[in-house]
Nucleic acid binder design. Sequence first.
DNA 1: GTTTCTTTCCATCAAATGATGGAAACAAAA
DNA 2: TTTTGTTTCCATCATTTGATGGAAAGAAAC
Lengths: 212, 212
Amino acid sequence: MKARILAVARRVFGQYGYHGATTRIIAKEAGIDISTLYYHWGEKGDLFEAVIFDMTEDMRQLLRRVEKVIHGRPLAERMDISIDMCTTYFFEHPEISNLILWRYFHKTREEMTWDERVPEFISDIARSMGLSAPGEPVSTRVKIRILAMMNSIHNFISGEHFFRHTLGLERDEYIPLAKETLKFALIPAFTGRFPDPPHSSETRGDLVEITR
Amino acid sequence: MKARILAVARRVFGQYGYHGATTRIIAKEAGIDISTLYYHWGEKGDLFEAVIFDMTEDMRQLLRRVEKVIHGRPLAERMDISIDMCTTYFFEHPEISNLILWRYFHKTREEMTWDERVPEFISDIARSMGLSAPGEPVSTRVKIRILAMMNSIHNFISGEHFFRHTLGLERDEYIPLAKETLKFALIPAFTGRFPDPPHSSETRGDLVEITR
DNA sequence: GTTTCTTTCCATCAAATGATGGAAACAAAA
DNA sequence: TTTTGTTTCCATCATTTGATGGAAAGAAAC
């Protein structure tokens, strides 16, 4: 039950933001009484912190999975696979993108300490992508590029509804086009080479196909 | 007074989002009683709509100014100037980026109609950037690239606090680095050429070494 | 100066929201 | 079965928040 509340809270906080999400909505969506929620998680702020922590753990696992797959490959391929895997994963768990962007962009009225226990993984990503030498500290310039890259991905997930509405696309058209656009923008900059024009396997973004 | 309330509301809605911003906060920040706010703008949702409308008008004006400056120049230069002008402007009016990203990414509990003028906006940008033939309808692929580009810019503005905290940067270091990073990612993709480094050859230097 | 219209604020309301105490339901241990 | 501990819900509170009526203050017209 405690876990179910957390899962629902993740989704609701992601959709409406901290202030937009009420404990009543979360309880209702979980099919329980509001006081059961308070029994398990204490005050709203604590539940939110738990959500962030939980989401961060999922991020860590994703990055480990990606790292394993891209290890040893050339940069262009590493980029291609990383974008594919991350985009696919976040489209399946959009609340992660929502929560991350929410934390990046918006204030809460209550003071909310930026949790220093929540690492941003930036340096880890830089190293596993081979954009920085192992052992060496990652330069600020590389870090900000990683940030920009991750953000671009999250934008397409969190912005799905608005973008699809604006562009008049169905979900199954939107997702491959988002991937293509991400590769279009990111791969040349990072690799110095332009991506192959999208053929079926890349556009569909089927993870199995790409990773063989 | 009516105008002053609107200006404050823009800022506060931008900072806290629709639900996080209360009419009382807005009134207090404007130095007036809450009922004066209601006298001028009616209910909260109407004020928010007015804010969006007002902000959209500013966007339109900015784009017109940019269009005038870049007209007739080669693509790489158009990109460079556009990124510069937009970034500078949004850093001076961060609530615009905040509001736009808020609208893209987050739901309101109440039903809120989407502004139908956004799509034409995207097409205007595509045409003035010369990414699409005049008169012709702008393709979806180009539109989504414009969206990605604009979003990347807004990310750096709205994310300033979090990113600077993460990267340990002062504002006057952050802004030029944000611009550089935007150009790093966007110019090669759109122009097929890599941007000249802003000062020395070190822009890409730290990457090239490692990635080859 | 008086009247009329506009603007501002004080007091207040109703609903929403965060939060809690205590009784009931349930489960496990004795 | 009884006891003990855990979990769930009902009822309720205190605050916050969106919203309004009406009095006072200003400003404009006469």
